[in-house]
Write a protein that binds this DNA or RNA. Structure first.
Ligand SMILES: [Mn+2]
Ligand SMILES: [Mn+2]
Length: 270
DNA sequence: GCTCTTA
DNA sequence: TAAGAGCAACGCCGC
DNA sequence: GCGGCG
């Protein structure tokens, strides 16, 4: 098996046991989704979530390039607390298929692009419901946050994460650093928590969240990542992070409404 | 998935 | 020859 | 400075 010039190893290996979904099928998924996904990946440093032995085995995160990565993988030097690291991004079908063949199930991207690492072009509010949380409350929270952001003149967008939560994000001009945006973003999150105290919490410590939805505004910082649109997720249903129109939200009953199995039906009809 | 270390 | 380890640590928060 | 968190 060969896709985009990449020789696919062990195409019959099972990656998602509950669905019987194989590595070959996963790679084909990323080939088919590439026209939708690549624009979101382009120029954004990445964290790969790799499960070479399937999602029920131990996986690992990867953010630094391995020596054996081929030359066509685009590199970017990233300053960190512990020194400069050579990281990478995905800007072609070839690299997307290469990463998938490496056992990558999920792609998590920066909110800033490779050429200006400290100036985000997106602001994200990540809604993380508690274990056994009610998805209807996540939907309600998303609508309330949408209304709040619109009142502030923003253009909030919606995405299912493919697991249990939703993302609400809006585009930003690359004129401020993460640090320069932090105070405003944090005060919006705190105000939302104050407006809807039954629904939302910004408590970092789980034991203080009282089973409310964690309004995770902390993604909006240097070096942090969140799941990329159209990435598969490492859950049994092979959920897909799916951008939605706001009008579609009422008809959705879970964050993994769209999956490997039905995402192309949706994209076909759009 | 792949490499490197150690046995 | 094979088994086992490593592969993210970073940035933030609140204490 | 440290543990917790994603
Ligand atoms: Mn989340
Ligand atoms: Mn989160």
């Amino acid at each position: 098996m060969e896709i985009a010039g990449i020789k696919i190893s062990h195409p019959d290996k099972i990656i998602f046991p509950d669905l019987g979904l194989t590595k070959g099928e996963m790679v084909e998924y990323y080939e088919k989704i590439s026209e939708y996904m690549l624009p979101h990946l382009k120029n954004r440093p990445l964290t790969l979530l790799r499960f070479p032995d399937g999602i029920e085995a131990e996986g690992f995160h990867q953010k630094n390039v391995f020596d054996y990565f081929p030359d066509f993988i685009s590199r970017v030097e990233v300053p960190t607390e512990s020194g400069n690291k050579m990281q990478f991004y995905c800007d072609s079908l070839e690299s997307l298929i290469y990463f998938a063949n490496q056992g990558t199930v999920s792609f998590h991207t920066w909110l800033a692009r490779q050429d200006r690492l400290n100036e985000p072009d997106k602001v994200v509010f990540d809604l993380d419901p508690p274990d056994n949380g009610d998805f209807e409350e996540v939907k309600e929270s998303a609508q309330l946050i949408k209304k709040y952001l619109r009142k502030k003149g923003k253009k909030p967008q919606l995405m299912t994460t493919g697991k249990t939560g939703l993302h609400i994000w809006y585009p930003a001009q690359r004129v401020k650093t993460f640090d320069e945006r932090r105070d405003v973003i944090k005060s919006m999150a705190l105000e939302l928590e104050e407006m809807y105290p039954e629904l939302l919490t910004t408590e970092v410590r789980i034991e203080n969240r009282e089973n409310k939805i964690f309004l995770d505004y902390l993604r909006n910082a240097y070096g942090q990542t969140s799941v990329c649109p159209y990435s598969l997720r490492s859950n049994a249903s092979a959920g897909v992070a799916t951008p939605l129109e706001w009008s579609e939200l009422s008809a959705i009953d879970s964050a993994d409404h769209y999956t490997y199995q039905n995402i192309f039906r949706r994209l076909g009809q759009k």
